[in-house]
């Protein structure tokens, strides 16, 4: 029954995809004379070819397929600062995300551990965390640019800030809610503080901590695109912005697809890691 269900689900997925491509194809079929007048505001927003309204700017599925194939054939070329392969751009973004994320993990896990261990610190820091948590990471950008004075590091800082909260909150919560019985076991065995932290509290809280890490990597990957659009230079976010200025919709769609795929890969990787530390009670 299960097998046939996943088979049918797969079939349905293919159907939905085909319908989507079909609708796309239909909507982008070249029409004559339709693109006569262009809204001047729109014309001001876009630059280049489309402003003249020469032809339907939106490519057909086949056009995009060709564009994607072009990118995949040679993802890592570098021809000057403004013309680098999409693979190179993705690597820049991934590098920033991982650096900011790992820094955040290095801060959030031990700090969250301490917060979770002490009800006093937990209560004392709670109002700060509650206020800082809902701030859009991009709101930090001007402050970061002003103080750090380096756009690359600022982007990493923004990733750091946005990855920090979910990890910090989940670690503190996981540590604070370790079952009393397990702590009692450690107490009656006269287990030392370090041994208790690593052999009882950490494994007990690990699933909750991993949940925070998974949320964080998702947010970080969402934020990097926007951050790179702001700071420019390199990265997949900058690539999307740049292609928008060139009005190369095919390239934008390629980038969007790749952003989705990389995001999914990151989530799957952390999902796997979460399964490693999960336990059944």
């Amino acid at each position: 029954m299960r097998g046939s269900l996943s088979l049918r689900a797969g079939l349905l997925s293919v159907l939905i995809f085909a319908a989507f491509i079909g609708a796309w194809q239909f909507a982008t079929m070249p029409t004559t004379g339709a693109a006569g007048d262009v809204d001047p505001e729109y014309a001001a927003l876009v630059s280049g070819a489309a402003a003249q309204g020469a032809k339907s700017a939106f490519p057909t599925p086949a056009d995009v397929g060709a564009t994607i194939w072009g990118h995949l054939k040679d993802p890592f070329y570098v021809r000057g600062a403004n013309d680098q392969g999409v693979g190179v751009q993705l690597a820049y973004s991934l590098g920033r995300v991982l650096l900011g994320y790992l820094l955040a993990a290095a801060v959030a896990t031990p700090l969250g551990f301490l917060i979770g261990m002490s009800p006093l610190v937990y209560r004392a820091l709670d109002p700060f965390i509650q206020v800082l948590k809902p701030i859009s990471p991009l709101a930090w950008m001007p402050l970061a640019l002003y103080t750090i004075k380096d756009s690359g590091i600022s982007a990493i800082f923004v990733i750091f800030i946005c990855s920090l909260w979910p990890m910090l909150i989940n670690t503190a919560f996981g540590v604070a809610s370790v079952r009393k019985e397990w702590l009692n076991v450690a107490a009656t065995l006269e287990v030392g503080a370090l041994r208790k932290a690593f052999l009882v509290i950490l494994p007990a809280a690990a699933p909750t901590i991993m949940t925070g890490m998974r949320i964080s990597i998702g947010i970080a990957w969402l934020v990097i695109v926007a951050a790179e659009m702001l700071v420019g230079g390199t990265g997949i976010g900058y690539f999307v912005w740049n292609e928008w200025n060139n009005l190369s919709i095919g390239n934008i769609i390629t980038a969007i697809l790749l952003i989705g795929l990389v995001g999914m890969a990151l989530d799957v990787a952390l999902g796997r890691a979460a399964r490693l530390v999960a336990y059944r009670e």
């Binding site: 019985e181 397990w182 009692n184 076991v185 107490a187 009656t188 065995l189 006269e190 009882v200 494994p203 007990a204 690990a206 530390v277 336990y279 059944r280 009670e281």
Partner: peptide, 18 residues
């Protein structure tokens, strides 16, 4: 405080599940 000289068998078994 607790001591290894006094071992406890808890009401719920209290095994570490991992």
């Amino acid at each position: 405080g607790p001591s290894l000289d006094r071992a406890v068998i808890f009401q719920g078994h209290s095994l570490l599940p991992w």
